[in-house]
Amino acid sequence: MAQEQAAVTGRSEAASGWLLISPTFLYSVLLLAAPLVAVLVYALTLKDVGGFSFANFHEVWTKPIYQKLMGRSLTVSFSVTLVTVALAYPVAYFVSFHVHPSKKSLWLFLITIPFWTSYLIRVFLWKVILGYNGVVNSGLMSLGLIDAPLQAINYNVQAMILTLAHAYAPFAILPIFVSLEKIDRSLLEAGQDLGESRWMTFLRVTLPLSMPGVIAAVLIVFIPTVGDYVTPDLIGGGKLPMIANMIEVTMLKQNDRHMGSAIAVTAMLVVAVVSLIFLMLNKRFLRGTK
């Protein structure tokens, strides 16, 4: 009897659960899964000829141009991830450990301010700052410190990394902050009580316990930056395309959806594999610790 009752409530709970997620589910199917399937189908068929073939993939995986662009994309996003997380950690640590609890929400609010303007505008502002006739160059020139605009700060990979690191900083700060907040402060006292200095306690207690946040930050920054195509266009001046620019050119300019789809699917696979390897390497930090 009790079991039946449980079964009945279970069913109705499940039903209301389905009802609750169905709008999102429908939306996901129509606007995410369906296009993905379409991309996959394009990638596996030949332009003009049609018919199932791996030829597109074969071309993407063997032609040096794609390898070079994919390599650049990965290099840029690895560097951006490294820089972003390395800079975000101290900020998150400071807010979590040294900001008075009543001021923490204010700090988080301030950290999210860059989100108030569109990503495009933020990237464009960096162009204004770093560009050939940008703020830095014209400033330095009017001060007489340099005679000609510096080339080293614009239209190169470093400028792209700088721009992207700034754009993604809040994404990295927040998950690290959350994981630091969850650490029981008595654990840090215990570390010192057991003879370790503050620094060693950080290395042996705080850092490993905040790793879930760091891992989340790494993925949140790494995955979208691989596919970024605004920054290479604006900051890289179009001279340093990344894989996403290649997809855009192939798809829209060359009107080759089949080839473009194959590049896109390849990029997705590469990102997925790199992310999975990263997760595997950090598996021990992600065990349940409740």
């Binding site: 057991l194 370790e196 316990l209 610790t289 409740k290």
Partner: peptide
Amino acid sequence: ANKRPTNMVFQSYAIFPHLSVEQNVGF
């Protein structure tokens, strides 16, 4: 604290959740 000849059992026990029992004891 880390240089004092005292050790503490905390109210919350403060067991390191990322370590095994022996890693905790040998910390």
